[in-house]
Simulated assay, not measured.
Amino acid sequence: MKIISWNIDSLNAALTSDSARALLSRDVLYTIQAHQADIIAIQETKLSAKGPTKAHIAKLEEIFANYSVFWRSSVEPARKGYAGTMFLVREGLDVTPTAPQIEAPTTMDFEGRLLTLELENLYVTQVYSPNVGDALVRLADRQQWDILYSNYLSELDKTKPVVAVGDFNVAHKEIDLAHPDRNHFSAGFTDEERAGFSNLLDAGFIDSFRHLHGDVEGVYTWWAQRVKTSKINNSGWRIDYALVSERLGDKVIKSEMIDSGTRQDHTPILIELDI
């Protein structure tokens, strides 16, 4: 089974705009399509509460023929056109989608951050974890989220093994970002967020990339848009992950990043399992 995950930073723009950045995003979608994955997880869709429009669906069907679409958008009382997740599932694959709520603080349960598929022999779930913000204003809420999310995965794991992919918005170790020395108090690399991720792994899950590649350095999934040379200089962060239940560790064949060319921000990740 092959699964791809990508934080797209606006599906609407990628599908309907002709800006330079949108064209780069659309190129990445075609790159993803070429991998012929069984399941494609997309975060930060930024769609309306009504979900994809007819124009969006038509374009998705053009790029991803023979895939079913499952989506979840941000709804009131959360902000409109914010966050959001989507699954594209290869036709013929029998899945049952759910949009779980985990009793998260503030409006997090309404921001479309979690989407789960139940298959015959496992769960595939995706997450767009909350960013704590430049002033760490959401750090306390994020700590609660991390506990509740870990509990949610653990509950799934009691029934079937789990593959959890997405934008976790945290670089776990110093080797997961280019400049750890200057970022210990930055969103995504605070001690609290890193501890939350460690606790998630301790709950019975494996970071599939590290499982296969060990302590390799200089491999990232995100480069800041605001810094024009961030990708050229590979000044990045690894904040997108594919986690698996411990009992799936020996089933992981690949866990890697997909080249997104010159486009900065997130790059897609791919996991392949012998299932």
Rank of each mutant, 00 (worst) to 15 (best):
F64I: 07
G196H: 08
Y149N: 06
D18C: 07
G92K: 04
S129E: 01
L136Q: 13
R26A: 09
A195L: 13
A203C: 10
S10H: 08
L15D: 05
E193F: 02
H56D: 12
E155F: 04
Q143A: 05
E76Q: 13
E62L: 12
S150H: 01
T229C: 07
L270N: 04
T45Y: 07
A20W: 14
M257C: 10
E120T: 11
I271Y: 09
W223L: 02
V216E: 14
R26M: 10
D215S: 03
I275Q: 08
Q126W: 03
I39G: 15
L115P: 05
L11D: 06
N66L: 13
A65P: 13
R194D: 07
S48R: 10
I253C: 03
Q225K: 08
R79A: 04
Q101D: 07
S260A: 15
L148A: 15
Q43A: 06
R138W: 08
L156V: 05
Q36A: 13
V227E: 15
L23M: 13
Q36M: 11
F70A: 01
S235W: 09
R247H: 10
R238V: 01
M1H: 10
W71L: 05
G214T: 04
P130M: 02
D207L: 09
H213I: 00
E61Q: 14
G204S: 08
A195N: 08
R226A: 11
I239R: 08
S235T: 15
P268R: 05
Y241V: 12
T116N: 14
H172A: 02
V75Q: 08
E118S: 13
E111N: 04
T267Y: 00
V162H: 04
Y30E: 13
Q43D: 00
I258M: 10
D240N: 14
E217P: 00
S48D: 15
K158V: 09
T125H: 06
F197V: 13
G92I: 01
I8V: 15
W223F: 03
N66F: 13
Q264M: 11
Q36W: 01
F205A: 07
D265C: 02
I258N: 07
Q264E: 06
A140Q: 15
G84A: 01
I206N: 11
K173Q: 14
P52M: 05
